[in-house]
Every structure is written in C-alpha cells, then in structure tokens.
Design a protein around this nucleic acid. Structure first.
Lengths: 292, 292
DNA sequence: CATATTATCTGACTAAAGTCCGATAATGCT
DNA sequence: AGCATTATCGGACTTTAGTCAGATAATATG
C-alpha cells in the first residue's frame, strides 16, 4: 500500500474513474461517445480523415460511418483534399461549430469546477504539469518559432522569473543584454521551443552576431520537464540549426549559480573559455566547434 | 494554453490516453474488459455479488452473466452467503488465482516501467499522491482501527517524521510520552485512520486517562491531503467517538511550531488552558467540553 | 403462517463499437 | 496507356455492453 508501485496504481485507479466520469458527461448531448469524439477531434483541427483515424485509432469503415452520421446531423461537411482528391477533409458547419463549442464549454466547466473544489491550486497544477509531461515525454515536439510568438514569450517569461529566484541579488532583465528578436530569426539565428501537447516546456535561442560565431541564449527547461533529457535535446536542435545556417563556432555564457547548466555543457563537448563579453550576470563562458 | 483550465485539460488528455493504453493491455488475456474487471475486483476482495455490482456500477443482469462466464471458464466459484442464503459470494478458484496474479503482474510491471522511464521518481510520486487525493477526496473514508494496525503504524511513522522536520531541535519519540496502544482502544479510547482508496492519509487518536477526561493525540494529515478539511473531519470523528464512549471533556496539547493545528482548534470550539502535563514538547494546551 | 421484500438469475432485447471485405475512384509508376 | 497502389466508402457481420421484465428462492414482517 505504501511502496512506489502501489502509489502509482492508486493514482491509476483514481484517474481511471475520473476519466470515466468525464467520458460519460460527453454522452449528455445525445450522441454516442464515438461520434462525440470525432466531432471534437475535428474541432481541434484534425481535419484530414486519415489523420482522424490515426488520432482516434479507429477502423476506416467505422470512421466513415461516424462521419456520415455527423454529416446527416448537419454538423460537418467533407471535401476532397486539394492536393489529392482521394483524401477527404472534414470541416465543421455552422451548427457543428455551435455543437463543438458546447462540448468545449463542458470541458472547461469541468476543469474549472475541479480547480474550484480544491484549495492548493498552484500545487495541483504543478503536479498535473509534471505528470502530463512524464506521460507525454515521448511526444515532446521541438519546433523553430518566432522569438516573439506567444509560446516563445511564455518561455522567456518563465525563464526570467526563474533567474530572479535563483540569483540572490535578483535579476533585472533590462541589465542583461536582451538580444534583439531579429538576431534569433533566420537567417541570422533561430529560436526553438519544446512543447508537450500544446504546453511550452522549454526553449533555446541561437543568436547571430557579427563576430564570426553565434551565441546560445535563453536555454530553459520547465521544472515539470526536468530529468527528461530535454536540455540536451534542445542543445542538439540548436546545433543542428547552426549547421543549416553554416555557423561553425558557438559560444555561450552562464552563471555558476546554475550548476545543472554548466554540467550539461561540460558533458556535451563545450570547452570553457575566458570571458568574452561584459555582461554583469554570467561568470562562466564556453565555446564549441560545430562539425558539418 | 497557459491558463489553469488549459493545464487541467492537458493533464486530462495525457491521462486519458494513458488510461486507454492501460485498459487495452487488459484485453491481452483474451477476455473482454468487463469480465477482466469482475475477476480483478473479486481478486481485490470484493467478493459479495451485491458489493461487486455497486463497486463496478453494473446492472444485476449483466453482473450475473459475467459471473456465469467466469464460472464457465473455471476461474471463480460462487457460494451462498453464510448469513443470508439469498446473497451470493464469489471466490477465485486455483485457476482464477493464477489468472488474477497474471493481471496483477501486468499492472505492477506497467507501474514499474513508468517509474523506470522517469528520473524524478520522488517528485512524480508526490504529484501522483496529491492528484489522487484531490480526485478521491469525496471518497476519503474514516474508520476506527487498532493503533497497532499496519495503517495506523504507517500514519504514526509519518507523523513522527514530520515532527522531526518541523522542530528545529529534532524530535525524539521516546522523550514524548508514547501513549500505550491500549489507551487508544475501546473502551478506553479510539484511533481513527482516514484512507483514500487504501492509502492512509490522516489519523487521530483519542487516549483515555484516569483523570476524568480523554486526550486528543497524534492528529496528522498527509501533505498530499492538506487543504481538504480533513483535519476538521478527523477531529469531528474523534469527538463522535468520545460521545459514544460517554467522555464529556477532551484535552490536547500542541506546539506553536504547528500553527495550522492551533488555528484549527481555536476555530472549532477549543479553549486555551494552562499546561496540564510536563511533556517537554508542547507549549500550548486546549480543552473542549463535549455535548451529548 | 401468509404475505411482502430482497437478492440473484434468466431470457429477450437494443445500442454501440468494432471487424472484414469488396467496390470505387484518384493517384503513382513504368 | 496500363497496372498497382492508396484513400475512402458501404454492406454484412460479430462482439460487447447495457436495459428491462419476469422467475425463483430465501428472508423479513405482521
């Protein structure tokens, strides 16, 4: 009852019955679960019939009949794919959008009421983030994004907040050279965000300079995603980006108050070098040669 | 994507697909899910047919047919209940026990591999406990137990560990008067444990004395269950127990290093009184008159 | 002791989910 | 152009889950 495995299994039981309750609530709109799932998947952007089948794990005959049913209800329409007329693309009609919105409202209400029933909301959310990240770790996606996109700004906000907590003297963003977004956009640089099922959980910036090297900046991994090797994955992605940009030398600065970071760099081929800028925060400097 | 509701829904999605995988793995033994669930419920001690129906939420006809099926497979047997021959009691045959053990092994393996895939095991387990407790808070059961039962000893162990952490000077159990278990058994007293789906998450002791009052001792609420009002529920249960034991006056001692506790007592009708024992740890003393 | 209540079982039924296979039409390949 | 491949569709079918209305037997109640 008290060993780790039992605790995991207790969690599974609790969550299984909660998920069951969530599922049956979807029956409230007079439609079997299968049809409701298809409608919601379409609403969430899975429009290709083939992709829908994959996402929901359904047989093609079953899928087809469910789509026909939703069409008969007037909730969706299907068109041939513009590049390949064998494939079909589903889309919500006006009525379908209303129905989808109703399901969304139910889901949101449910989530809100769960939060409202509990007091330690921040602790709960952190626990949920942690578990969701652990469960979906195989599905963490890295993607290049604009450094001013919503996802990137969220990551940077969390990054600065964390620096503020880590440095005893606090951290003032304006004091650190805040690299121009344009230096972290192609063709000068790159900005990479890791997301786990829509939640940004890490980032790294590759900032172009005019001195024959590029800098790695803003490496951040969300607390809920630590221990998954995400830092290394992000660094590899940044190096790959540097390769495609034909950048041969990378530099970075960091602070000894962030020991995990220094450890990561040392074990992945970075070499400590003397200070190469006059930024007041960093006290450790690294360099790495990129092989094509 | 970043607001609390989205985070809850991300968690729901992650967990739904994990639960689905877990469910389908149960299909691997060539038996539909319904039958597998019944077999496992019996294995976990739900032997009464009526209780089984309740626990699994199944119609009596369906239940009956599933039991017949398992009987035909030679996995279970049913007998009339010894007190009431209308009721039936199911039990595993030798083959049934083997089959149940196989399901258990699958569940355990799954839990182990989840833990093995992740590094921050302690953080994950704490998060799982927290969420499981939040999800099952409506189903927290209070029950009188022997103060030397496994559940009670677990609670007391955690309680002392927590005291050790809270008191700067540490805490030596042997120094505090460890009330004899017999003083917390009927008819002199009582010991109440709160469990959430088999995990003990809180306790309280009612210790009889020869001085015309009883003492409340060892009030503990697991970290993962705080904020759910469990302390108050435990205290109410202890007062109820005192009523059934015809004890009219309760006393307790506590320490100002545990502010939540003092707060709880003050808001539930307890009155601060002068020191009534020479125990070195407590520095706050309370009393409450119990009305029949 | 007669009657009502209960716990379970059986049979007849429906709905939902899922499988399998052949048909159809668009596309890719030689 | 001819042929294989691919994506979807529709029909026939099975399994699983679930409902409902008696039937039966044991127990409770007046």
């Amino acid at each position: 009852m008290l060993d780790p495995v039992s605790r995991v299994r207790r969690f599974n039981r609790a969550v299984t019955s909660a998920v069951g309750a969530l599922d049956t609530s979807f029956l409230g709109r007079g439609r079997p679960l299968g049809a409701a799932r298809v409608l919601n998947a379409i609403g969430h952007g899975h429009s290709d019939v083939g992709e829908l089948r994959d996402y929901l794990g359904l047989d093609s005959g079953l899928m087809s009949r469910l789509l026909r049913g939703l069409e008969d209800e007037g909730l969706i329409g299907t068109q041939a794919h513009e590049d390949d007329a064998r494939r079909r693309v589903a889309s919500l009609t006006r009525a379908g959008k209303r129905e989808f919105a109703a399901y969304e409202a139910m889901s949101n209400t449910q989530a809100e009421s769960f939060l409202a029933r509990n007091s330690q909301v921040e602790a709960l959310l952190a626990a949920m983030d942690l578990i969701a990240s652990a469960l979906t770790r195989e599905r963490i996606a890295l993607a290049e994004m604009d450094p001013q996109s919503e996802e990137a700004r969220y990551c940077l906000g969390e990054y600065y907040a964390e620096l503020g907590r880590r440095f005893k003297q606090g951290f003032d963003v304006s004091l650190s050279r805040d690299p121009d977004a344009k230096d972290m956009r192609r063709p000068r640089g790159s900005f990479i965000v890791a997301t786990s099922d829509t939640l940004p959980i890490g980032c790294v910036g590759l900032k172009g300079t005019d001195h024959g090297y590029a800098e790695i900046k803003r490496l951040w991994v969300a607390p809920c995603a630590r221990g998954l090797g995400l830092g290394k994955r992000l660094m590899n992605a940044a190096e790959d980006a540097a390769r495609t940009l034909r950048i041969a030398l990378l530099r970075l600065d960091t602070n000894s108050a962030l020991p995990e970071a220094g450890q990561l760099y040392r074990t992945t081929g970075w070499r400590e070098i003397p200070r190469f800028n006059d930024d007041p925060y960093p006290d450790l400097f690294f360099e790495k040669q990129i092989r094509a």
